[in-house]
Computed example of a mutant assay.
Amino acid sequence: MTSTASAGLEVAGLDKTFGDLAALTDMTFDVAPGEVFGFVGSNGAGKSTTMRIILGVLAADRGEVRFGGSLINSDTRRRIGYMPEERGLYPKMKVGPQLVYLARLHGLSGSEAAERTAYWTDRLGIASRVDDDVAALSLGNQQRVQLAAALVFDPDLLVLDEPFSGLDPVAVDVMSEVIVEKAADGVPVLFSSHQLELVQRLCDRVGIIAKGRMRALGAVDELRSAGGLRLRIDAPRAPAGWADGIAGVLSADYADTTVLRVDGAHDDQAILSAALATGPVHGFVSETPDLTELFREVVTAV
């Protein structure tokens, strides 16, 4: 078996239509060796369609998927650990034999498959359930088994579709540790999640898609900085509109606390003086928008 460890994933110009629906349009991004790439978007945005094309479950109408510089084929797909959003396990088959079976399908010997199954079921906290049918497990434990199935053959690329869905906080921590460790081993990791705080914490880069197109792509800090700076001002007597017309103020949200979106040339002191002119100021904080705010702005702008 030829390993493609330390290879990168390239997705170039994917188009996919279903009837009159354009599911993907020029979907392009890459995941470098050892990188954790977060793939985020609303339901129906095209995340799962992209992942299924990478896996060969669907065929693209146009575009290419490469791994290690070569077009992905059936041999390289055997080296991809895939965790689908929907349960992809045999519900009436016992956990241990099922993982051994799946590992052997990916080329491991019987002894190797048994060894890797023992390791990952122990690591993911389901060693005591190896003799249970998958259907007898809680949804969270089924999710752990699905992750074990993606990892049991020591893949060279991980593609995880909503891997944190249904997990308790302890399992989320374990899942996060595994993702970071696999990336540290040089494995590219592509995962989608609606839990944007986890994406922000774990990912090196993020792609935000909406209506089948990549709308924002870059390092998390770069995307957050590009979203503009915010000033959060607690001025309880300030009337709505008090900051309108001040140089550097791009937009304002006047609520119990005023939130101003400002450009790089804004003058903090001028804004603070204008706030003080309305009465007492109890708070004046500069902040960068988090990924959740950025995601909301990108998606609603489409």
Results as ranks from 00 to 15, higher is better:
residue 287 E to K: 12
residue 73 N to M: 07
residue 280 P to T: 15
residue 113 A to H: 09
residue 129 R to V: 10
residue 174 V to Y: 01
residue 217 L to M: 10
residue 118 A to Q: 15
residue 35 E to Y: 04
residue 48 S to M: 08
residue 240 A to W: 02
residue 171 A to I: 08
residue 239 P to I: 12
residue 223 L to W: 01
residue 120 W to L: 03
residue 150 A to S: 08
residue 180 V to C: 10
residue 256 D to W: 04
residue 114 A to W: 07
residue 181 E to A: 15
residue 97 P to K: 14
residue 141 N to K: 08
residue 73 N to W: 09
residue 263 D to F: 10
residue 59 A to K: 15
residue 67 F to G: 09
residue 288 T to Y: 00
residue 244 D to G: 12
residue 247 A to Y: 04
residue 53 I to H: 04
residue 192 S to W: 04
residue 171 A to N: 09
residue 47 K to P: 04
residue 108 L to H: 04
residue 236 P to L: 07
residue 62 R to W: 06
residue 147 L to P: 00
residue 60 A to G: 10
residue 130 V to C: 08
residue 97 P to Q: 14
residue 149 A to M: 02
residue 65 V to F: 00
residue 29 F to A: 06
residue 153 F to P: 03
residue 216 A to P: 00
residue 179 I to A: 03
residue 59 A to M: 11
residue 229 L to P: 00
residue 60 A to N: 09
residue 267 D to N: 11
residue 111 S to N: 13
residue 165 S to I: 11
residue 92 K to G: 11
residue 14 L to P: 08
residue 266 H to V: 07
residue 52 R to L: 03
residue 158 L to R: 01
residue 128 S to L: 07
residue 109 S to M: 10
residue 275 A to E: 12
residue 127 A to W: 05
residue 19 G to S: 13
residue 280 P to D: 15
residue 161 D to M: 00
residue 11 V to G: 00
residue 192 S to L: 05
residue 193 S to I: 02
residue 124 L to H: 01
residue 290 D to T: 13
residue 1 M to R: 12
residue 13 G to H: 14
residue 111 S to D: 15
residue 71 L to T: 15
residue 115 E to I: 01
residue 60 A to I: 12
residue 114 A to R: 15
residue 297 E to F: 08
residue 199 V to D: 01
residue 240 A to F: 02
residue 215 R to E: 09
residue 277 A to L: 12
residue 270 A to K: 10
residue 142 Q to E: 14
residue 11 V to K: 05
residue 2 T to D: 07
residue 30 D to E: 11
residue 99 L to I: 15
residue 239 P to E: 05
residue 119 Y to D: 07
residue 16 K to C: 10
residue 250 L to M: 14
residue 82 Y to D: 02
residue 78 R to N: 06
residue 38 G to M: 10
residue 4 T to M: 11
residue 179 I to Y: 03
